[in-house]
Each structure stands twice: as structure tokens, then as C-alpha cells.
């Protein structure tokens, strides 16, 4: 089954993001990972690229951008967004350089749709 991967060390953040992505992209399974290493394990187990990966930046272990780099190597072309409250220009620039869009936390459904390239509802 097609799925969306959420990678965030906060359960509450995963709940809030999950609510938003379920509304914007209904009908997809939502798989949650508590950090990058957990996400790598889950992706390896499933052997399938997610339709979208929403990644927190500040997590124990690998940062969100480091994990995005791992995804590029192992699942090239899989769409992903960095979802973070740390919206420094320098971080947004670094993300853009590796082809990752930034979704500022907290986000509205319309902003999520815009960032992942879905038509407005």
C-alpha cells in the first residue's frame, strides 16, 4: 500500500502532522518514525519508496537534512519536505541546495498542499 512517512521525535508533532497530511492526501497509510534511524529501518523493511516523507530537522541522532541525504542516495526522487520551526534563512538555503522544501511548523493545510505541489483545494 502507498504510504506517507513522518519522521519526528515528538509524538504530539507526529499527531498534528498526521492530521494535516491525512486531510491533504487522503487514502494513504501513514507510517511514523521517531528518528532517522527508525525511519531507515522501516523503509528498509518495506522496500518501497514513500509517496511523501515529512521530516523534522532537530532530532536525536541524524538531523533531518542528513536523513534527507540518506534518502537521496537510497530512494532517489522520493518527494520529501523538511517540517521545522527552525526557519532560519541559512537552513532554508541549505535545504534548497539539496532539493528539499521547507514547511514551517505549525502549518496550514493550504501551505502543505502548496509546498508538496498539490493543487489548492
Amino acid at each position: 500500500m502507498d504510504f506517507i512517512l513522518l519522521v519526528d521525535d515528538s509524538k504530539v508533532a507526529r499527531m498534528l502532522i498526521s492530521r494535516g497530511v491525512a486531510e491533504a492526501m487522503p487514502g494513504l497509510e501513514i507510517v511514523e518514525a521517531v528518528h532517522a534511524e527508525d525511519a531507515i529501518e522501516k523503509l528498509t523493511e518495506r522496500g518501497q519508496a514513500p509517496k511523501l516523507t515529512v521530516i523534522d530537522y532537530n532530532m536525536p541522532g541524524m538531523t533531518g537534512l542528513e536523513f534527507a541525504g540518506w534518502m537521496d542516495t537510497n530512494w532517489p526522487g522520493a518527494p520529501k519536505v523538511l517540517c521545522t520551526a527552525n526557519i532560519q534563512d541559512s537552513l532554508v538555503q541549505r535545504a534548497a541546495e539539496v532539493g528539499v522544501s521547507v514547511l514551517p511548523k505549525p502549518f496550514s493545510i493550504s501551505k502543505l498542499r502548496e509546498v508538496v505541489g498539490l493543487p489548492a483545494a
Binding site: S10, V12, A13, L16, N58, T84, A85, N86, I87, Q88, K105, P106
Partner: peptide
């Protein structure tokens, strides 16, 4: 509480 703190503080610092 951690998530609220994370969002609010990072928003201000950024």
C-alpha cells in the same frame, strides 16, 4: 509541552 516550547522558541530565535 515540549512541542509547544520547541515551536515557540525556535520561531523566536529564527
Amino acid at each position: 509541552l515540549l512541542e509547544v516550547g520547541n515551536l515557540v522558541l525556535n520561531a523566536c530565535l529564527s
